[in-house]
Amino acid sequence: MRIKTSMRISRNAPALLIAALASTPAGARVQIHVDLSTQTMHVTSAQGSYAWPVSTARAGYVTPRGHFSATGLQAMHYSRKYDNAPMPHSIFFHGGYAIHGSYATGSLGRPASHGCVRLAPGNAAALYQMVAAEGASISITGSRPTRAAHYASSRYLSHAAYASRRDYSNPLQFLFGE
């Protein structure tokens, strides 16, 4: 497997590559599955299994579906297409599409990106390290959640639960809240 990285190759690269291959069990790869319908990522690696919320393409954009391999890793990438936006711990898998960290953690769990798969920064760093050590097989399935499912986010449910506790038979509470 060939993974392009942003690191410079040193004279010791062949010895380091042999050492890395010797320490990695044959065929060991991180299995990454992104479910667009639930906006979750399931990861299985030699280090364990994880389930993380993600953000994928919002309306008007597309996150590609299919089976991919990691094609490049960059510890810090800046998007040339979207205002130099930071993309920490980028794992490229299909052209300019990547799995990467996002500082917009409040959007995780619902569609919000231009097509990339966004993760919390700590989860992206952990995944990056796993993929650098083991390689990766990436599958993306499902479809963008419907608008009704989007509105069923935890933030909306919290607001709905709060609103349902109000007693609208009391005109003062109706006008002024609690």
Results as ranks from 00 to 15, higher is better:
residue 84 N to Q: 09
residue 81 K to Q: 13
residue 83 D to V: 04
residue 67 H to R: 09
residue 75 A to I: 15
residue 69 S to E: 11
residue 89 H to Y: 15
residue 91 I to T: 11
residue 97 Y to L: 08
residue 94 H to E: 13
residue 67 H to I: 07
residue 84 N to A: 06
residue 91 I to H: 01
residue 81 K to L: 12
residue 89 H to R: 04
residue 97 Y to V: 01
residue 76 M to S: 07
residue 72 G to M: 13
residue 83 D to M: 09
residue 73 L to T: 01
residue 70 A to V: 05
residue 91 I to F: 05
residue 82 Y to L: 07
residue 77 H to W: 14
residue 87 M to G: 02
residue 72 G to D: 12
residue 89 H to N: 10
residue 68 F to Q: 07
residue 93 F to T: 00
residue 73 L to R: 01
residue 89 H to E: 02
residue 80 R to P: 15
residue 97 Y to F: 15
residue 77 H to R: 14
residue 80 R to G: 15
residue 80 R to S: 14
residue 74 Q to Y: 08
residue 80 R to K: 11
residue 71 T to H: 04
residue 82 Y to E: 03
residue 74 Q to M: 09
residue 85 A to R: 08
residue 76 M to I: 08
residue 77 H to Y: 15
residue 69 S to W: 00
residue 83 D to I: 08
residue 67 H to G: 01
residue 70 A to Y: 00
residue 82 Y to D: 04
residue 88 P to T: 04
residue 81 K to D: 14
residue 93 F to C: 02
residue 96 G to Y: 10
residue 83 D to R: 10
residue 71 T to C: 01
residue 88 P to A: 03
residue 93 F to Y: 15
residue 67 H to N: 11
residue 66 G to A: 13
residue 86 P to L: 04
residue 84 N to R: 08
residue 86 P to Y: 03
residue 71 T to Q: 15
residue 85 A to M: 09
residue 97 Y to T: 04
residue 92 F to K: 01
residue 82 Y to C: 06
residue 86 P to I: 06
residue 67 H to E: 14
residue 86 P to S: 00
residue 79 S to E: 08
residue 82 Y to Q: 03
residue 66 G to W: 05
residue 73 L to M: 07
residue 92 F to R: 00
residue 70 A to D: 00
residue 74 Q to K: 06
residue 89 H to C: 02
residue 81 K to H: 10
residue 90 S to G: 06
residue 90 S to Y: 04
residue 66 G to R: 04
residue 93 F to K: 02
residue 84 N to H: 07
residue 71 T to N: 05
residue 78 Y to A: 02
residue 83 D to G: 14
residue 71 T to K: 12
residue 78 Y to S: 08
residue 83 D to Q: 11
residue 79 S to W: 02
residue 95 G to I: 09
residue 81 K to M: 11
residue 76 M to H: 00
residue 94 H to F: 11
residue 96 G to Q: 11
residue 69 S to P: 05
